[in-house]
């Protein structure tokens, strides 16, 4: 049961609070995950440390070639940010798909990452953007790719007893680059994804310079479709190569049968379609033609 609720005004204060409770406090940002987990008895911290009052956490900024999102940036903010819509569309698209507007208005992108659910839409897009998480503790700051933070279903490598993710950072896309997010769900709002796919790619002289394809939920966290990425890297843009890459994603993915998300066989078949469609969108965004 909660005995206290803290509203630190700075990162340092939040970290002090964490230390003071030595593992018995939990961080709350939007609260859309932890409130449900607490109600279901899955976690029962003695105190909540609410980081939503830390001023710099609300910022979306361009820092050189990077876009930086504070730990308090919500899905609504990201989905509607002109900067993200222009230079990281995949993330705006992914954030728009989460839950409902009420959820998006409070749920944060960092929360989406640290909850470490296998098909968290924003996290899938962030992995495709090769986003880096800034992690602070009382000893200092370090950086870690979002992709590396997964330690199993619902388990994040960030030690929430002493550490805080303070920001996310990724490279803004340039005009020869494109991105897209595709999602299969049983309804258009308030729906768990049956599948989601994020693609970020770069074109150079009619060929794929590099491609990052992330798919979920086909593993404990977002999964890079490495085979597909390799097929595309350096290859000329063509419908045939895209089809081949999509087929490779299907082969690599290992979804599980799920009463809520559909059978493994079905989702593998549709995954191929989503990967192909995401690639097509991203190519056309990057100025390529098919």
């Amino acid at each position: 049961m909660l005995k206290d609720y803290l509203l630190p005004a700075s990162v340092d204060e939040a970290l002090q609070n964490l230390q003071a409770y030595s593992g018995k406090a939990a961080i709350i940002a939007g609260g859309t995950d932890i409130m449900v987990n607490m109600a279901e008895g899955k976690v029962s911290p003695e105190a909540l440390i609410d980081i939503s009052r830390i001023g710099e956490f609300k910022q979306i900024e361009e820092e050189g070639e990077f876009i930086k999102l504070g730990a308090g940036v919500t899905h609504t903010q990201a989905a509607r940010s002109p900067l993200i819509r222009e230079k990281a569309l995949v993330l705006a698209q992914a954030c728009r798909e989460v839950g409902s507007l009420q959820i998006r208005n409070v749920g944060t992108l960092v929360g989406n990452v640290v909850s470490a659910q296998p098909a968290a839409d924003a996290a899938v897009a962030l992995v495709a953007l090769e986003a880096i998480a800034e992690i602070a503790d009382l000893q200092g700051k370090r950086e870690e790719p979002v992709e590396e933070l997964y330690a199993g279903i619902g388990a994040c490598k960030v030690d929430c007893r002493s550490q805080l993710v303070t920001a996310l950072r990724f490279k803004a896309l340039s005009p020869n680059q494109g991105s897209a997010f595709k999602r299969l769900a049983k309804r258009k709002a308030l729906a768990l994804p049956m599948l989601n796919v994020a693609v970020v790619l770069s074109l150079k002289e009619g060929a794929f310079e590099w491609v990052r394809i992330v798919m979920a939920p086909v593993g404990p966290g977002p999964v890079r479709a490495t085979a597909s990425e390799n097929i595309l890297a350096g290859a000329s843009v063509s419908p045939e190569i895209i089809e081949k890459a999509a087929a490779a994603a299907r082969e690599q993915a290992a979804p599980r049968d799920s009463a809520l998300r559909g059978s493994a066989a079905y989702r593998r078949d549709v995954l191929k379609v989503l990967v192909r469609r995401a690639l097509q969108d991203a190519v056309s965004q990057a100025g390529g033609s098919l």
Binding site: L7, G31, M35, V36, D50, Q102, N105, V106
Partner: peptide, 21 residues
């Protein structure tokens, strides 16, 4: 959404907002 209220101008689910927030 049955518990939707407006918090600082935005629609939120009151059931997910700890009172101290």
């Amino acid at each position: 959404g049955a518990c939707t209220v407006i918090l600082d101008g935005e629609a939120v689910n009151a059931c997910l907002i700890p009172i101290m927030k």
